[in-house]
Design a protein around this nucleic acid. Structure first.
Lengths: 128, 128
DNA sequence: CGCTTCCTCAACCGTTTGGTTGAGGAAGAC
DNA sequence: GTCTTCCTCAACCAAACGGTTGAGGAAGCG
């Protein structure tokens, strides 16, 4: 439960999804489980390369692998997405709050300079 | 507006956030804008290294930079987070739907085998 | 048994990445 | 003007990454 672990996990997840091929595989896996061969088919790379990609996804916890004779069906693990979403949402929310505070300050300044002008409600994130 | 562009943008954003130092800087920036020097202070690396990190964040669109005399204040751009969130949510939702479908199928099978057992509503993502 | 299928491991290779140091531009301070 | 502060650019370096080929394990098929 250490923050250390969580941070490394997060790094692995983000790094895994930084590759478009790997993102594409994740997209493919939302439709249903697939074998390595099936996953490799659409791409113009060797099966070994795909195997490496899957290892990266697995170590990020995005994917798990079963056994079906020679085949190794790949399964998408949706839970890890929550880790990312939490991280993103945390900072996105803080940033938004900051904007709102800034808007409030600007509105107050505006009001101090021109008390005739109604401060009204600050506009939401309409920054360039 | 091409998918190409969006995919490359997504790759840059994920890659940028794959580095813990860069994630930390983003966290720091949610508190408020900061100069390069201020951002560099907490870390045991050269200012040049931090400057490079900021370039990565900027090219990912996560950050913009202003001018204040010699200083280059860094500002967090919250919009790009939405791009990520959209991508994640899309696939997380699909995966969840798939689980629900699977749950429904399993419930139906269960019901077919033991019609006495009430199928009830499938539980939400409570998988291990 | 031998043979084929599915997949992974190991070694190698070029490119990218995250760091360094050194040089230097831009702008306030003296 | 000179000096100092803040920051970026350029060159370099080791490590990691994404790909390749070759070898080989595991398991069904003949």
């Amino acid at each position: 439960m250490t923050d250390q672990h969580s941070s490394e996990q997060l790094s692995r997840v983000f790094a895994a999804l930084a590759d478009p091929t790997r993102r594409d595989m994740v997209a493919r896996l939302t439709v249903g489980d697939a074998t390595v061969g099936e996953l490799a088919a659409p791409y113009d790379v060797s099966v070994q390369a795909v195997s490496k990609h899957l290892k990266v996804l697995e170590e990020a916890g995005l994917v798990s692998r079963g056994r079906d004779a020679q085949r190794r069906p790949v399964h998408l693990e949706a839970e890890v997405f929550d880790l990312m979403t939490k991280w993103i949402e945390r900072y996105r929310r803080q940033a938004e709050q900051r904007y709102q505070r800034l808007d409030a300050v600007l509105a107050a300044l505006q009001y101090a300079e021109n008390p005739e002008t109604a401060p009204s409600t600050p506009q939401e994130g309409t920054a360039s």
